[in-house]
Design a protein around this nucleic acid. Sequence first.
DNA 1: TCGTTTTTAGCACGAACGTGCTTCAACACC
DNA 2: GGTGTTGAAGCACGTTCGTGCTAAAAACGA
Lengths: 208, 208
Amino acid sequence: MPKIVDAEARRHDVVQAVFRIIASDGLERASLREVADEADLAVGSVRHYFASSDELLVFSFGAVIDRLAGRLETALASVEGAAPESPEQHNAVLNLLGQFLPLDEELAVDACVWMAFRHAARIKPVLAAEAERSHRTVAAVVGRLIMILNPGEADAQQNLVTEAERLLATMDGLCMHALLQPEWMTAEMCSDVLTAHLRSLRTAAASR
Amino acid sequence: MPKIVDAEARRHDVVQAVFRIIASDGLERASLREVADEADLAVGSVRHYFASSDELLVFSFGAVIDRLAGRLETALASVEGAAPESPEQHNAVLNLLGQFLPLDEELAVDACVWMAFRHAARIKPVLAAEAERSHRTVAAVVGRLIMILNPGEADAQQNLVTEAERLLATMDGLCMHALLQPEWMTAEMCSDVLTAHLRSLRTAAASR
DNA sequence: TCGTTTTTAGCACGAACGTGCTTCAACACC
DNA sequence: GGTGTTGAAGCACGTTCGTGCTAAAAACGA
């Protein structure tokens, strides 16, 4: 019968090549030829697994979303397992929010790719559905996090939404700055900003 | 002598065409041919004013930075002219921060273009210098704003830097979301988030 | 050993890109 | 009115892109 190749693993390899190209040269350089070279394959081989360039990009977008979502779910479980107001919970929250930031090489690649696809989705309609899913997924996690940090505020649902969007915006801004101005936005500065934001969350909750 | 054409006005027209293309189709579509078409010129004419594609892009990046910086300086003067803690000051601050957001058509174009160039600068070295200038300029304004809102904190300079970066990150995140997920991040949500952030600034200052 | 089927490799076409270079038109000055 | 400088326009070349299509290569059952 056929030559046996683990198709799923191959697709994963190709997607990894896409990630590396986006991180180093930008999404617009992630052409079939570049991807094939990076993955040590021929263009025809890549096209055997992905019918078109668009399909490859959409699949890659979905892959990075799934990776991030998986990390967030794991981190959220840690937060839920920690005692409220405890230092363990604080560290768990910092760890969760750190999943958005380019704190190491692997996270940096994911952050680059995630940002690139989301911005590209504004222009390319094929990416719109995944961008929507990306936003919903992340917003759900951050929303649950806000609920954990602001217990017993069943009435002020408006504030929960606002605070969730505020935290989400801050995280995206931090990620942007860490990617675009790494000299200014160092890991320590990220940590300082996050700590300040979490403190502001607590005092805001207490003052209501 | 030569045919008299207001070269500066022509360059401005071309840059406006670049802005429109970036806002509607993305920076990668801002080729010489597209720009020339949009500006109702021939490719050769555009190249008469801008020696190369890179020069056109760098000039356009600088133009959007200057536009934003001008609006920010004007708005900052209003903030400085208002009485501390007054509603007028609050509105002036909201107005200043609103200059970052795509609250109307013109602001939306600027926001798109600004974001696109900053992200492109991560990849294209020719844009790096302007990206650096962009960050320094905006950070200076936001830093002064934080100093105005947190008077008499000469000791805690660390906190000022952290709070400035935090506000900057939040603004960039808000801008991103308003551009990428306009259904979720409406103008009202932007206003709510900003108000919450300003409240958190005040309570944080009071608690120290 | 021989097919059969998956995998890999490659060619060819049209489109779009930046850019070097040439050509035409227009206008202010002598 | 002639003339020379400058704006406007366009051609041509090499590159890169996506994609339809064909053909070789490889691996396993018969």
